[in-house]
Design a protein around this nucleic acid. Sequence first.
DNA 1: TATGAATGAGCATTCATTCAT
DNA 2: GATGAATGAATGCTCATTCAT
Lengths: 191, 191, 191, 191
Amino acid sequence: MGDDARTRPLRADAARNRARLLDVATEVFTTRGVGVPTEEIARAAGVGVGTLFRHFPTKEALLEAVMVRRLESIADRTAELAAGSEPAAAFFDCFRLLIDQSAGKNDFARALAAAGVDVHSTLQESSAAIRDRLDVLLTGAQRAGAVRPDLGLAELLALLAGTGAAMEQLGADPDGRERIYSVVFEGLRPR
Amino acid sequence: MGDDARTRPLRADAARNRARLLDVATEVFTTRGVGVPTEEIARAAGVGVGTLFRHFPTKEALLEAVMVRRLESIADRTAELAAGSEPAAAFFDCFRLLIDQSAGKNDFARALAAAGVDVHSTLQESSAAIRDRLDVLLTGAQRAGAVRPDLGLAELLALLAGTGAAMEQLGADPDGRERIYSVVFEGLRPR
Amino acid sequence: MGDDARTRPLRADAARNRARLLDVATEVFTTRGVGVPTEEIARAAGVGVGTLFRHFPTKEALLEAVMVRRLESIADRTAELAAGSEPAAAFFDCFRLLIDQSAGKNDFARALAAAGVDVHSTLQESSAAIRDRLDVLLTGAQRAGAVRPDLGLAELLALLAGTGAAMEQLGADPDGRERIYSVVFEGLRPR
Amino acid sequence: MGDDARTRPLRADAARNRARLLDVATEVFTTRGVGVPTEEIARAAGVGVGTLFRHFPTKEALLEAVMVRRLESIADRTAELAAGSEPAAAFFDCFRLLIDQSAGKNDFARALAAAGVDVHSTLQESSAAIRDRLDVLLTGAQRAGAVRPDLGLAELLALLAGTGAAMEQLGADPDGRERIYSVVFEGLRPR
DNA sequence: TATGAATGAGCATTCATTCAT
DNA sequence: GATGAATGAATGCTCATTCAT
């Protein structure tokens, strides 16, 4: 089809602005919540508010873009892991990865929650990608006898969100985190 | 209605308003988050804003009161359960109770998070009561050999918050909820 | 007929309440300005807000009552002084008295300003009484050759208000205050 | 003079808005007191509230800016006068100028009061400038034998505030004003 | 295109005044 | 009469979004 409007080449500085905006917004939303004024995000990114709103027509759109990027990165990592290990290890490594990457505010829990039931189509896409990959990992691990066969994708997503919330509540204590993983992973074993 | 001759007429209205305000705020904060305008809460309770601010000098104070009441109710239920069963059953029944009672948005997770690290003294008290009772239940179940001995109170709180989040993410599906419980409870067993 | 509503005997406690309210309001308005909430004044007087508003139907009415009482007390003192001394001494003593009594916020300046041009009839009465007495003192002192004959009552009131403002600005320094008096009194002398 | 490096290049319309806001606020605060709602000031200046708060982050900041501007204008005029006349005339001309310029409500009295004891640094600066200039004028006039040598700067400030208050109380009557000046200036003479 | 000034609906909170107890 | 809980208009201030420069 040739050049699609959606793939129109962004001017170098515009692309850089967009990227900076996303980076800064991710950082800010993660550490200080979504209540931070857009103006502050723009300033931290070194641009004016107008530029922010040119790239993201709404604050919510910015938030969504942050989540999409996060979900995509998660999907990529998930795919990598799935490709490189045998099923059981892939599954559990991926579980840890998802959780450990969700450090900060209860941001990831929401992102995953959004992955479960969602309204926005952009997010739908990215979260569908994750769900597909997780499904593959799950059934792989189940076939390999490493995970209880009665669990479905919905329960896996819930457990991921839940484990993330547990970790967030626990804080930095590494031994404690390991014990949480231990409880969840033991619980995931076939009986 | 039903004027009781023995009730002091002075506080009757005020008490009812306070109670209504707390009920409405609990409902509203739980289902729609803490961003709801105070005016709307007041209207839903059938009082003017002034009345709301007479009873709770700050929006934050109202939120705190809601959480305290919830925590107190949780503490009471916990104590009842602990008194009536043998240790293992008491522990697991209480776990379920805490989760099932935390219906609604990510409210309970926050309440429990508040139980972990907190600033306000009123909340401190109520959450300390819960923690004490949970600690008793936990060590009882551990002595009875029903729960892994390496878990501490902090991990238990994290697991409660996490399981709550998982349930919230999962929605109403009863079989799915049971499977989540199953995973967590199996994981809690001594190996 | 019979008992006039305006002279109806106030019940003992009602009278005491009214008096306490006036005392407290005088104190509070003088030291902290008129922005203090009525509720606080009521509390300081040991009564409920309702009682305050029974005695003074409006906050402004309370303020007015405070000023009237103050003006009346000033008028009385002025009359005393006028009666007891020879004209020149009476005039200058009275000048000092008015100023020294007006310690605190720039309350008295306003009261005297109100004595000049005013809207409320109650105040009109009391301030007219002061003006009359001051006029007597002024012309007496002028006849005695102690004060410039070209000054009128209006200028005297202005000088009183101004000297009060100067004292307020100066603060407690007694030597400074004396120098201010010295300037004004020298200036009042016939040339 | 020329552009100050510290002054951010303000956009033309922004500068105009800021100026309008200051003008309107000066007018409004002077004639109707500081109780006037910010919204009304904004409307009178033909801008939205947001614009007002962009320029002056607080109502108090606006009030302060108004006073600073007034004080600066006073300081400038004072300097001009001091430069152009011999000491005695400079002193008395300046005294008149300060008073006559303080037309309006009890605004100038407050500004001078602020010059006496103050908390805000911006005001401190401008008022310090005035005080310095007044001090020079005062000692000059005293050396020239035109003013009592026992008066200090504090008393001068108090007399200025007081004379302003007297004029305000007196109203427009030109003969009366002249008599007030006469009283004060005679009183300032060395005995 | 980027900028940041302008906008104004919206929010938490206060306080004079009323009225049920 | 006295009380103080209830009322709600009003206020200072914020912030997502628009638009002139």
